[in-house]
Nucleic acid binder design. Structure first.
Lengths: 340, 340
DNA sequence: TGTCAACACGAAACCGATTTCGTAACTTTT
DNA sequence: AAAAGTTACGAAATCGGTTTCGTGTTGACA
């Protein structure tokens, strides 16, 4: 990189001190307008830009927010990022994005790197491997160091910090209820393994809706997808059961279910209703398009970042973790029967 | 944030100088093993972590790469980010991600912020508004400041820097040729306005393939989609023409075409073949699934970041812009007739 | 016993800004 | 004319590290 122009250069060239330059550039009243003009003109001409690192070191803040996501090629997380970036920008922050790729080890490392003063705070959605391990010491470390932290979507109670979640139980209930209301009784659930708590919560909602209708949950109707294996094959198995509807906890599972249903000769939604989660492009462009729970990822991102920046800028405040619950909506499309 | 422990604290507590602490922590031979052990034990116990900002200021490098994308809720860009992050991590860099949201103004601002020393280099895909304006002074500024820059996918010749692109002409040709080879003659093209150069290049490939078969391009078969208006309506119009195939320059257009074709009663691929671009989830889960040009976003990201880091770490090298062309593959699926 | 090297450590400069405090040179007040 | 107040600027500390260049103390060797 080319030798950049600094305050020192300007000072030397113009025969003044660095303090004078600094003040002149901030239009301080301490400096005569004559000197100010001279300095400003010079700075302008040579396109002087204050060095951010120096400022960050001095101010002890970076105006950067670290974001760690399990993955990005996923409609929900993409929209969350958009929300975070948007909210951050509004308040003069930038975001530094990293991915854990669902790996515990990478999450620990990334957290370590980012917490070395590179960021003022962190927004994280926990990796599935970490949720499985149940080892959250790396997060607890952050808390004791008092580095502002906001968890979203995939959160755990053990970590004392602000959280933003969707009302997963309610959403699971809403989806299942919708199926029940339209005459479906034998509803399969395609979910994640139980350690991914959003999956577990959505399942709770599913079970709650069934119980209300005095339907016993049938374990054979429930598939816990292991993403390391072939997803489609695992989902296919539940179609051997006598089912008339599928509730999938994400888009991909729903799209797979749709495909399998069609292959098996079911008519959607006449013989088989399908509801997904995450209102992404797959659901929208599938045919028939898929009824789904819209998670409002953008809103979640904005809320998370607002929470975080408030925390960063009001350190003095007594620490009382907040939890924001974002409601989710059922987006009716063609894969379920119209409400009767 | 809690008062963090610094080298100064350690020095004071242990009654040594900061230089001694610094050296001890780097296991310098200048320090007696006795003192080293004492200092290291202390640092370890109090979980000392060197302040990144201080190091960055001193070393004049941040080990951070800025990435500016037009959007993220898009399979191609998501995969590119993954590639960039992956490649960056391998070489000890982090990425700072921003979005221009296709806006010229935001691109300029973001570029200004990031080039203040916050990053060692930049990877950018140009906003469509900027391409339309043809105002690239903000990029030229970077070049004269000698801040390493790599453009990918949406690039322009005016900017002298490294570039990574897909072989858009070739890909457009490949897609069109495939349609022609399978008996389609009246091929519609759903593309972007001409200022988005990837669209223009893919169109060139399309035209080239037609010319080879002595088919005159029919302007009525070509739709330049304005994303500010209703996408579907614009695409629908071309179906009024007598066409037997559609080549769309991205997933969304292809999915829309698929939907319209089905609505109009065409059988895909018997009556109507469809080829898309970007091998994303929509193409995969559409039914019938969509034949598409796979762009290898991950590879592009990795190549771009490798190019950038090489540039960052070998500033001495004479500057000769490199251009890497990533080949793209035709991924055959159900929306086109099997090769005869 | 004087000299020199090795050892172990500290002082101070440096990265690029900001900011407090001091002060010389005027101007105003009494 | 002395005291007080302005004006316009500079010196130096600071942020948290690294690194160069001393320097005092040993011990070995001639």
């Amino acid at each position: 990189m080319k030798q950049k122009i600094t305050i020192k250069t300007i000072a030397k060239e113009l025969g003044v001190s660095t303090s004078t330059v600094s003040k002149a550039l901030k239009d301080s009243h301490e400096i005569s307008s004559e000197t100010k003009e001279k300095i400003q003109a010079y700075a302008n001409h040579y396109n002087y830009k204050p060095n951010n690192l120096a400022l960050q070191l001095r101010n002890q803040k970076t105006k950067v927010i670290g974001v760690i996501l399990p993955k990005i090629v996923h409609h929900f997380f993409s929209t969350v990022i958009m929300g975070i970036e948007d909210g951050a920008n509004e308040r003069g922050y930038n975001i530094m994005v990293c991915f854990s790729n669902e790996s515990y080890k990478k999450e620990v490392e990334t957290l370590k790197v980012l917490s070395n003063g590179s960021v003022d705070g962190l927004i994280v959605s926990i990796a599935s491997e970490t949720l499985e391990n149940k080892d959250f010491n790396h997060f607890k470390g952050l808390v004791t160091e008092e580095i502002p932290l906001v968890l979203f979507d995939r959160v755990v109670d053990e970590i004392l910090c602000d959280k933003v979640v969707v009302d997963d139980v309610g959403a699971g209930y809403k989806a299942t209820k919708h199926l029940l209301d339209n005459g479906n009784k034998k509803i399969a659930l395609i979910t994640t393994p139980n350690h991914v708590n959003v999956g577990a919560l959505r399942r709770q909602g599913y079970e709650k809706a069934l119980i209300e209708e005095y339907i016993k949950t049938n374990e054979n109707f429930i598939v816990e997808v292991d993403e390391k294996k072939d997803i489609k094959k695992q989902i296919e198995k539940v179609f051997d059961e006598d089912i008339d509807a599928v509730f999938a906890v994400n888009e991909i599972y729903a799209a797979n279910a749709m495909r399998i249903a069609k292959e098996k000769g079911f008519k959607v939604p006449e013989d088989m209703s399908i509801i997904g989660f995450t209102d992404g492009l797959i659901s929208e462009y599938s045919s028939p398009s898929i009824t789904t729970i819209a998670q409002h990822g953008f809103t979640m991102g904005k809320q998370a970042v607002a929470l975080l920046i408030d925390r960063i800028e009001n350190e003095s405040e007594v620490f009382k973790p907040k939890k924001i619950v974002i409601s989710s909506d059922l987006k009716l499309r063609e894969s379920t029967k119209p409400s009767s």
